[in-house]
């Protein structure tokens, strides 16, 4: 207990977790948008889009996240000097943006697969009935299939969100000052408090993920489609 208080006084734990939260939330929104687009491409009637989406999912999902993060940050940003923001923006923000991009690209594949599994729960008849009243492809998807698919996908999407929360620790490897980056500092400078450090970090992530898990369970029950 004494150790925990000491850690909280010496290190800015809240700032580090705030970075984790920002990484998580922004990447989650990015992954949801990109993942939905990929899932829609996969069920679209256009073979080129289907192939592109399948290839994207297969390739990225099977690549280690560490590799994607280092490729984006070390390879593209630091080595090739590709900036996503104007050069006047400070390097920390540039780094943060690349980290978000890497997390988004990776987790979009899991989102896409979650939504596709959701689409598979929607009976064929729903799409047929929508086409029969004259809805076009976009309307069939937007009005009938996706709203039902998304509800069925809440649980897998929740799992992805929780995995994403914890996967943000990977970007500490390239120097983004989130929670696990702070943990490394703590272990280096306060090694006598090793177990307090572990406990504090574990507690921090549980505080983030537990309510998320509860929320997704509640939401999937509340918005379940009655058939």
């Amino acid at each position: 207990m004494q150790g925990l208080i000491e850690l909280l006084q010496q290190y800015n734990v809240l700032a580090a977790f705030w970075m984790t939260i920002r990484l998580t939330l922004i990447s989650a929104v990015g992954a949801l948008v990109l993942g939905t687009i990929i899932a829609v491409m996969r069920v679209s009637p256009v073979p080129v889009l289907q192939r592109f989406a399948t290839t994207y999912v297969t390739l990225v999902r099977n690549t280690p996240l560490t590799l994607i993060v280092t490729f984006c940050v070390l390879g593209l940003y630091l080595f090739m000097n590709v900036r996503l923001l104007p050069p006047s923006v400070d390097p920390k923000a540039q780094l943060f943006t690349w980290a978000v991009v890497a997390l988004t690209i990776y987790h979009a594949t899991f989102v896409a697969e979650g939504i596709r599994s959701g689409i598979n729960t929607v009976p064929q008849g729903q799409a047929e009935a929508s086409r029969a009243i004259g809805l076009n492809f976009g309307q069939v998807l937007g009005q009938v299939v996706l709203p039902q698919a998304m509800r069925a996908a809440i649980t897998p999407l929740g799992n992805t969100f929780i995995a994403l929360t914890k996967n943000t620790t990977v970007v500490s490897a390239v120097g983004v000052a989130e929670a696990s980056y702070l943990m490394k500092n703590m272990i280096e400078f306060s090694p006598q408090l090793l177990f307090a450090i572990f406990f504090l970090m574990a507690l921090g992530f549980v505080i983030l993920t537990l309510p998320a898990g509860l929320f997704f369970s509640w939401a999937s029950a509340k918005w379940r489609v009655q058939r």
Partner: peptide, 28 residues
């Protein structure tokens, strides 16, 4: 799509839109 709008179809398994109310099914 325009042609389908002019040809009504009723299915064996109803295929009502499960996530929409009865009125929304009819107004979509």
């Amino acid at each position: 799509a325009r042609l389908r709008a002019e040809v009504g179809m009723v299915f064996q398994s109803f295929n009502l839109f499960s996530h929409k109310s009865i009125l929304e099914n009819v107004t979509l």
